[in-house]
Simulated assay, not measured.
Amino acid sequence: MRKGDTQEIRRLNRRAILGYLRKGPLTRADLSRLTGLAKSAVSRLVDELLQEGLLEEGASTSPPLGRPGTLLHLRPRARFALGAELGVEGTVLLALDWRGEVLWAKEWRHPREVGPKERLERLLAEVWPHVPGPLGLGFTLPGVVVEDRLLLAPNLGWRGLDLKPLLQEFPLPVAAENDAKASALSEVFFHGEANLAYLVLSTGLGVGVVAEGRLLRGAGGAAGEVGHWLGQGGKTCACGRRGCLETELGLGNLLAHHQALGGQAEDLEALLRQAKEGEAKALEAIRHLGEALGRFLANLAVAYDPALVVVGGKAAELFPYLEAPLRQSLRTHAFLEAHRDLPVRPSVYGHLAPAVGGASLFLARFFELGGLWAERPRRNGGRYEEVAFGDRRGLGA
């Protein structure tokens, strides 16, 4: 046996136990049956997890056959992570527990021209009161992110940005990711879908694609930047080119179309309020966007053939009004018969989804490692403790 194999087996067995308990409460006997581990091994690992505060015991069971057992649960809020979205016009910061519950969320707006240093300084000030405690802070950006570098974020006007120097003052582990990619990973983590396209539609348009459980990144990290597919339009995009798809499908264009129809909404929140009130021009503008999105999804289905499309960003809150024209347009333009009824649903987290995706970077890593990020035994032989954020191998790497 190679050095470290015993510890790796322990890690994998803990991960299996935690993974089954994420689906619902189980007894030790249930875990032994599901994992194939001996009951003694399950009891030993469960005792570890109880001691570490990750599990709690609940009600006793009375099966018709066999001995009674005690149900084990993931302990609510036993571990949590912070997630943030650095958007074009504002920032979202939230705490997400390992069961997917948003513990709290805070949002603030800022002008587009505010630079990365100022935005991250404000984020650091908001994070400080919540440290220690979180596993880490994952934040998302609307652009091409490769490890600690932002290659390009057209709608922010940022290019070739080294994030490392800007993150040195943060008092906890930090990871950066593209907003659509992080959101797609959170869908894999929380819902287990192995083939999906996650559409973030707000100021811009991006897609995170998961195929066979692996996130598509591309050779340069730009996979999914579908907002910069070139169309026939003549509008100049924030990237400097003319005719990029997001100039037609971005929510800024939705608002401009509404105003061209004679609508009075000054922002998307006002437009959504008017749609809820049944205002005709607001509903017409949203219907027009829904038809365009249906055509776009017909193209996306040909390119990636996902089993599911999840709509996130601000568009998730418009989905009740987008859904009917979107589905009709998709049926009309679908290439394969199967694509006519491609499942499309809004993110359950609405516009908070990119920040949830950021927090999921750390939560998914925690589960992958069986709750053992890195280990060093205490001198008295007591329990192990989690330390710093590990490497980037694992979910979606």
Rank of each mutant, 00 (worst) to 15 (best):
M1S: 10
R2Y: 03
R2T: 01
K3Q: 05
T6M: 14
E8T: 14
I9C: 13
L12G: 13
R14Q: 14
G19K: 02
G24T: 09
G24Y: 12
R28C: 13
L31R: 08
S32A: 15
R33W: 02
G36R: 03
A41T: 15
R44F: 11
E48A: 00
P63K: 02
P64R: 04
L65V: 15
G66I: 02
P68C: 08
G69I: 02
T70A: 03
L72A: 07
L72P: 15
R77Q: 15
R79I: 07
F80A: 08
G83L: 11
E89V: 13
L93E: 04
L94H: 10
L96F: 10
D97N: 09
D97G: 11
G100Y: 00
L103T: 01
W108M: 04
R109N: 04
R109G: 05
H110L: 03
G115K: 00
P116V: 08
E121Y: 02
V127H: 11
L135N: 05
G136R: 06
G136W: 02
G138W: 04
F139K: 09
F139A: 12
V144N: 07
E147G: 14
R149I: 01
L151G: 11
W158C: 07
L161S: 10
D162Y: 06
L163Y: 12
K164M: 10
K164R: 15
Q168I: 12
F170S: 06
P171V: 02
V174R: 05
N178D: 06
N178A: 09
A182R: 04
A182Q: 04
L185E: 00
E187F: 06
V188C: 13
H191P: 12
G192I: 12
T203C: 05
G204E: 07
L205I: 06
V210T: 00
V210G: 05
L216P: 13
G221C: 09
A222R: 07
V226D: 04
G234A: 14
C237R: 13
R242V: 12
L249T: 01
G252I: 12
A256H: 09
H257W: 14
Q259K: 09
L261N: 02
L261Q: 01
Q264C: 13
A265G: 00
L268D: 02
E269P: 01
L271S: 12
A275Q: 07
L283S: 11
R287T: 10
E291Y: 01
G294M: 13
R295G: 14
A298D: 01
L300H: 02
A303T: 00
G312Q: 09
E317L: 14
E317P: 14
F319D: 09
P320A: 13
P320T: 05
Y321F: 15
L322C: 09
A324I: 01
A324W: 05
A324S: 14
Q328M: 08
L330N: 10
T332S: 15
F335N: 01
R340I: 02
R340L: 08
P343M: 05
V344F: 06
P346H: 03
P346F: 09
S347E: 06
H351M: 02
L361I: 10
L363H: 00
F367T: 03
E368H: 04
L369N: 11
L369M: 10
G370T: 01
G370C: 12
W373E: 15
R379C: 05
N380T: 06
G381S: 10
G382E: 12
Y384S: 13
F389Q: 03
F389R: 10
F389I: 00
R393F: 10
